[in-house]
Simulated scan of single mutants.
Amino acid sequence: MIIKTFGDLKIPALGLGTWRLNGNTCKNIVLQALNIGYRHIDTADAYGNEQDIGRAIAQSGISRDDIFLTTKLPWEKLRGNEVIAAMRQSLDKLQTQYTNLLLIHWPSTQGVPVKETLEAMQMLKADGKIRAIGVSNFTPTLLTEALKHANILCNQVEYHPFLAQSRLLEMATENELMITAYCPIARGKVSDSETIKEIAETHDKLPTQITLRWLIQQKNVVAIPKTANPEHLKSNFDIFDFELSEAEMNRISGLNQGLRLIDPEFAPHWES
């Protein structure tokens, strides 16, 4: 496992995303992931599976302090008092005293100033309920505003070879931020890329493995692929025994086509 350092935090470069995983399916895949060696788990209030992940961690026998656990605030509850209440509920479901990272899941659509939300999150951090503060689905403009009000660790966004995040990556370098890539294999579309397939053959790896390696070889990037398939869970983790050359990295970066797969009606204006 590659561990990335941001300030005094050490974060596994590869995690498990859990969107659309629920019930025993979620619990069992998280348990399997922890047994394989995953130590970075990502969830959200909106996923409705925090209780399943809490059960998995409790049953795993792995020390809570060895797991980097992220959850996210519901985007319709970003007022200060709502943030405190939502976090209390998340901690109860997750059966833990703290999360390593708490994110604003989506920018407010109800006009809640990001300053108000971040101030409440900073209170939670001061109380030991969270170790770090972050945002998700923030555009460069929104991220700039957030950085004025809090020490932001992370912006979690859709990022894969077909969707460049050039400005956010620049901001990550400038501000020592982590970019967490969700939808990192573009819902499997990377397996259809002739370029990625050619590079995969060179390394005797799968296109998905090449893509995940491309992401985590970028200094400020971590990736959280989601899967309910035990074989995919294993293969996604088998990316630490090879490296991509600079030329291969550049070839994959050249595949950008602005393909955005996650774009709900409440999303921000992405170009801002």
Score class of each variant (00 low, 15 high):
residue 23 G to Q: 09
residue 51 Q to S: 11
residue 112 V to E: 10
residue 132 A to Q: 10
residue 65 D to L: 02
residue 118 L to V: 11
residue 74 P to A: 12
residue 25 T to G: 12
residue 53 I to F: 01
residue 66 D to M: 08
residue 73 L to Y: 10
residue 74 P to R: 10
residue 151 N to T: 14
residue 61 G to Y: 04
residue 141 T to Q: 15
residue 134 G to C: 09
residue 70 T to F: 04
residue 39 R to K: 12
residue 116 E to P: 02
residue 127 D to V: 06
residue 121 M to K: 03
residue 93 K to N: 14
residue 36 I to Y: 12
residue 19 W to L: 08
residue 22 N to D: 05
residue 127 D to C: 04
residue 141 T to V: 07
residue 105 H to F: 07
residue 129 K to Q: 15
residue 116 E to M: 01
residue 102 L to M: 13
residue 72 K to L: 01
residue 46 A to R: 06
residue 76 E to M: 12
residue 111 G to H: 11
residue 94 L to R: 08
residue 91 L to M: 03
residue 23 G to N: 08
residue 83 V to E: 04
residue 59 Q to T: 08
residue 132 A to H: 11
residue 137 N to M: 10
residue 42 D to V: 11
residue 20 R to Q: 15
residue 59 Q to R: 08
residue 95 Q to G: 03
residue 77 K to H: 11
residue 49 N to I: 04
residue 109 T to H: 12
residue 65 D to A: 10
residue 119 E to L: 13
residue 105 H to V: 00
residue 78 L to C: 00
residue 38 Y to L: 05
residue 143 L to Q: 04
residue 116 E to S: 07
residue 65 D to R: 02
residue 57 I to C: 01
residue 94 L to Q: 08
residue 56 A to R: 06
residue 43 T to C: 14
residue 112 V to L: 08
residue 53 I to N: 07
residue 30 V to P: 00
residue 85 A to S: 14
residue 29 I to N: 01
residue 132 A to M: 09
residue 150 A to R: 01
residue 27 K to W: 00
residue 111 G to I: 07
residue 75 W to H: 14
residue 112 V to S: 03
residue 19 W to P: 03
residue 52 D to M: 01
residue 92 D to M: 13
residue 105 H to Q: 08
residue 40 H to E: 13
residue 69 L to R: 06
residue 17 G to I: 05
residue 146 A to L: 04
residue 51 Q to A: 13
residue 30 V to A: 10
residue 78 L to K: 00
residue 134 G to P: 09
residue 41 I to G: 06
residue 140 P to I: 08
residue 122 Q to K: 15
residue 72 K to N: 05
residue 129 K to F: 12
residue 55 R to H: 11
residue 32 Q to M: 09
residue 34 L to Q: 06
residue 67 I to W: 02
residue 66 D to S: 15
residue 118 L to W: 08
residue 152 I to P: 09
residue 114 V to P: 09
residue 113 P to M: 04
residue 81 N to K: 13
residue 128 G to A: 11
residue 43 T to I: 09
residue 34 L to F: 03
residue 86 A to H: 00
residue 111 G to E: 13
residue 37 G to A: 06
residue 110 Q to T: 12
residue 66 D to Y: 00
residue 54 G to M: 07
residue 70 T to V: 15
residue 76 E to W: 15
residue 125 K to A: 14
residue 107 P to I: 07
residue 99 T to C: 15
residue 148 K to P: 01
residue 52 D to T: 03
residue 16 L to A: 11
residue 31 L to G: 13
residue 81 N to E: 13
residue 49 N to P: 06
residue 107 P to V: 02
residue 147 L to S: 07
residue 56 A to M: 00
residue 42 D to Y: 11
residue 63 S to C: 04
residue 77 K to G: 00
residue 18 T to E: 09
residue 90 S to Y: 07
residue 124 L to Q: 10
residue 147 L to M: 12
residue 102 L to E: 12
residue 94 L to T: 04
residue 142 L to C: 04
residue 109 T to W: 09
residue 142 L to Y: 05
residue 139 T to H: 08
residue 64 R to E: 06
residue 69 L to I: 05
residue 48 G to A: 11
residue 143 L to P: 05
residue 18 T to V: 05
residue 47 Y to R: 00
residue 96 T to Y: 02
residue 98 Y to M: 10
residue 153 L to R: 04
residue 118 L to A: 10
residue 105 H to Y: 05
residue 142 L to R: 09
residue 114 V to S: 09
residue 151 N to S: 14
residue 77 K to F: 06
residue 103 L to R: 07
residue 89 Q to S: 13
